[in-house]
Design a protein around this nucleic acid. Structure first.
Lengths: 344, 344
DNA sequence: GTGAAAGCGCTAACAC
DNA sequence: GTGTTAGCGCTTTCAC
């Protein structure tokens, strides 16, 4: 492995000069050229590890996400990656698997590796602990979920608004007994989506004099396919007037499960309305096509990376939270309880 | 930031002893305990960067994949991650985006960061160049695709066999004019799948005295949704007896595109048979359900990580290539040209 | 503009 | 067993 010293000797200059050539210090054009040429001849590539040790900072940012198999997060990751590439930062992707311990492990790695900064979609709002990074004054941006009490920049989705819009749409389509399959308790995203649902439902029920929201209509599941399926099965087992005629599902994977559960008992949307928070991949192939609340996943990543890079560059300004809006995408699965069945 | 020296001073021992405590050197139990306690009090965490510089090797392995949004690769990544976790290696995920330049950039980073090893699913069989890593004697395992001429361990899928099995199945189901949407020319996976298809088709055509395989039946696309759609559209435009009654699609994403193209012109499998190489996510929701050649994505990753760890540990043995078998999953989309349409 | 020299935090000889 | 010491390759004062 050729080092900066080898190049220096070969080019007849000092190591310091070689370093300056590669880091934009003042060197006369002629010398710089000579250094560059000999470096190329020798196949020299700067050793980033040594550089990091000296600078106490690596040119790598960490991205910690809870589920790499969820297309929402892969899309977010692409956003981060594309933005980072602009400033020659490389991205290290860590999958916390919705597990706070694994997540802590990765946070510690990020600290120990002295990464330039970290973007984190927290596994838990209450239990994710960012103090390891805060201690080292490492720039951190929370994305999608903000751990309680963490004073970091954040890029969030307007989940509550999305939940409201979704529920409102189901009501407008003629559904009345609208259930909600929410995510794990304690996840901010889930809580906010649920809050949007509750707000709209409460208003509606009061106006129509129908009493309080039946607690059976809200199910908590785990944001995974299986959880969605189980929750939907329970909802379908509710007796008489409690049995929902539509369901607002708080994420894409659970929606897949819910659809499977419906299919098992021979029900096809829109007879029971289904609205998914977050796009389902290849939604185009699902029949009937699925109404969704579209999440700005890629933009979330892109924006977070932008914020992080400002902080890394040392920009001093008050903490900020950027909130990105969702967009309701109406398709066939919420056409209304009495709509014509969708031709296959 | 507390260093090994701080701990040493506080515990009244030498830095070397502290190092030994954390790296399994011989230290008396009593001293070791004292060191550990003071380390905990001071919140000491070893600086991995310094460690890497000294050891000339990091405890990180790189995983370079061509498309993070393809579920095949995310599943593979999970396999790598789970295996790596067993030995406390962390995994850095790099997305080459099927782009040889981006890929080279990541390979250089892996070298410069002195990663312990690299697992790479090459973007191109002919143009991916692993010499940067070979020069530094860095352990490398090729997975899914092996760059030509690279002398590295490899974990591969038996693509040719998969292609044969798929094509044979389509013939057995009664299809006769079977086309193939292959991947980019030069990708080993695509070439092998295509070879399997060609072998079976050639035999069949010869036996039935039907002349050579029409070149129109083989289309090369880009392994993406759009490419699959375009190729299928072209196939459907073929005149008369050339128009295929079934198609073998060489990866999952292109299958999605092909299905969309079919739907656009109102054709539903199995009237035209569709067989996908590789699972389509949420295949359960697609109607008619999709026959697939199942890939051992997770196992591929797991096995590759195992091989790599052996090499990192310094195991000396001849280069090996592990080939994992595919499994044909017959579902509705290949029921035969005259099968009853699938009830929706 | 350039070079000499110090040192980032750690590990591995080596001497005891 | 344990401590002393010499770097790993780089950046960055500080003189010149």
């Amino acid at each position: 492995m050729t080092t900066i010293n080898d190049v220096a000797r070969a080019a007849g200059v000092s190591p310091a000069t070689v370093s300056r050539v590669f880091n934009g210090g003042r060197v006369t054009a002629e010398r710089a050229e000579r250094v560059r040429r000999t470096a190329a001849e020798l196949g020299f590539a700067p050793n980033r590890v040594a550089r990091s040790l000296r600078m106490k900072q690596a040119s790598v940012i960490g991205l910690i996400i809870p589920d790499i198999e969820n297309p929402f997060f892969t899309s977010l990751a692409r956003g981060v990656e594309d933005a980072a590439q602009q400033t020659n930062l490389s991205v290290v992707l860590c999958n916390s698997d919705e597990d706070v311990d694994k997540e802590r492990n990765y946070l510690e790695i990020a600290a120990a590796e002295q990464m330039a900064g970290v973007i984190v979609a927290a596994a838990s709002r209450s239990r994710t602990d960012l103090t390891v990074l805060a201690q080292r004054r490492m720039p951190v941006v929370a994305v999608d979920r903000r751990p309680r009490g963490a004073s970091v920049d954040a890029v969030m989705v307007d989940n509550e608004h999305g939940g409201e819009e979704a529920t409102q749409h189901l009501l407008s389509s003629g559904y009345r007994r609208i259930a909600c399959i929410a995510g794990p308790e304690g996840t901010s995203t889930s809580e906010e989506r649920l809050a949007g649902y509750r707000a709209v439902m409460r208003d509606h029920l009061r106006e129509s004099g129908a009493g309080p929201l039946p607690s059976e209509w809200v199910r908590h599941a785990d944001f995974r396919v299986e959880g969605g399926r189980a929750a939907m099965t329970e909802l379908l087992a509710l007796p008489g007037e409690l049995r929902p005629d539509a369901v607002f599902v708080a994420n894409n994977l659970m929606t897949v499960g819910a659809l499977e559960a419906l299919r098992e008992v021979g029900i096809e949307p829109p007879a029971v309305g289904v609205l998914s928070f977050g796009d389902v991949p290849w939604a185009s192939l699902v029949r009937p096509s699925l109404s969704t609340v579209q999440l700005p996943a890629y933009d979330l990543g892109w924006t977070a990376a932008g914020l992080l890079q400002e902080r890394i560059a040392g920009v001093e300004k008050p903490l900020q939270t950027v909130v990105l809006r969702t967009a309701l995408q109406v398709r066939e699965s919420t056409a209304g309880p009495d709509a014509e069945p969708v031709p296959s």
